[in-house]
Simulated scan of single mutants.
Amino acid sequence: MTRFGYTLMTEQSGPKDLLRHAVAAEEVGFDFEVTSDHYFPWLSAQGHAPYAWTVLGAVAHATERVDLATYVTCPTMRYHPAVVAQKASTLNLLADGRFMLGLGSGENLNEHVVGDGWPAVDVRQDMLAEAVEIIQRLFTGELVTHDGTYFRVDSARVWDLPDEPTPIGVAVSGEKSVERFAPVADHLVAVEPEPELIETWNATDGARTIGAGGARAIGQIPICWDPQEERAVRRAHDQFRWFAGGWAVNADLPTTAGFAAATQFVRPEDVSAQIPCGPDLDAIVDKVRPYWEAGFTDIALVQVGGDSVDEFLRTAAGPLLEKLRAAAG
């Protein structure tokens, strides 16, 4: 059965609002909740960037049923992988085993703040692979010393661990990254509904099979529900026109000013062609459909616009979930 989740967008809401949204999303029936882990919003119009891990700790305490995950954390620059292992384990204890650590190679927007520059994509993938190795070793509870290409760890141990190691999902975007991370990750994370990602993952030696083998494929899609379609289009263009750039562009831009400049010629109709806008729930279902048809087991929705989230969760989310589950089967 396809599971549907809600995204706690740290770029568009403050910490107390995110906590309220998390509780409401659980009450309305979402299966899981993921959170972005950003130091900057994409655009200044979004206006927020609280610390995701503090928010998740509060969410773990305030919720009872929903699974939780980072979507995604970069464990290579802003955070050292030894610190990521510690905080992921602590969070999973607070969540009673409901937490998955979602990892990725990061974006310049968030990682440049520590002043270490921005490596080429191949280097970032190498750093991520080494970081995953360190984190998994620390998840065993053993004393770890590591002298690698990118990271040193000196006699580190995570003392507070859940009964079972915290599962790790890794963000992938193509055949090369799938083949590299499928053997070491528990779950696949991706933002494009490409069936080739699932097929390559399942065909990779050492990978857990998605679905039957217990691995999950977790996707994400923005929507902009609103009773008024015109207002939804305006809001999506104001706050989410960066989405039109694609991963290759979005990973490298360093500031909100850079995203504003890169998207200055993106029109409202360009955004609404990618993001379903307005009150039509069936149109939203049609946009989400390619994910489960591609083989994704979990799909997280992003409601665009922090000021619209309360109304969305109160009036539209329940009926939308019913339609999504009926369509997905």
Rank of each mutant, 00 (worst) to 15 (best):
W159P: 00
D163N: 12
D163P: 04
E164Y: 08
E164K: 15
E164T: 15
P167M: 11
I168R: 06
G169L: 08
V170S: 04
V170H: 02
A171S: 14
A171F: 07
A171L: 11
V172Q: 09
S173W: 14
S173M: 15
G174D: 11
E175G: 10
K176H: 09
K176I: 06
K176E: 08
V178R: 06
V178G: 04
V178A: 04
E179W: 00
R180A: 05
F181Y: 10
A182K: 06
P183D: 09
P183S: 09
A185Y: 08
A185N: 03
D186F: 06
H187G: 02
L188G: 11
V189T: 06
V189G: 01
A190T: 13
A190R: 09
V191Y: 01
V191K: 00
V191A: 06
V191P: 00
E192N: 13
E192H: 12
E192S: 14
E192Y: 13
P193E: 05
P193D: 06
P193L: 08
E194G: 04
E194S: 10
L197C: 05
L197S: 04
I198N: 06
T200E: 12
N202L: 11
A203I: 06
T204E: 00
D205W: 00
D205I: 01
G206N: 05
G206S: 03
G206Y: 06
A207C: 01
R208N: 09
I210F: 12
I210P: 08
I210D: 11
I210N: 08
A212H: 04
A212D: 12
G214Q: 10
A215H: 01
A215E: 01
R216S: 01
I218W: 11
I218P: 02
G219F: 14
I221W: 10
I221T: 13
I221C: 05
P222Q: 13
P222V: 14
I223K: 07
I223D: 04
W225H: 15
D226S: 12
D226I: 06
P227M: 14
Q228P: 04
E230K: 00
R231S: 03
A232V: 01
A232Y: 01
A232W: 01
V233L: 00
V233T: 03
R234Q: 08
R234L: 07
R235Q: 06
A236F: 03
H237Q: 09
D238L: 15
Q239L: 13
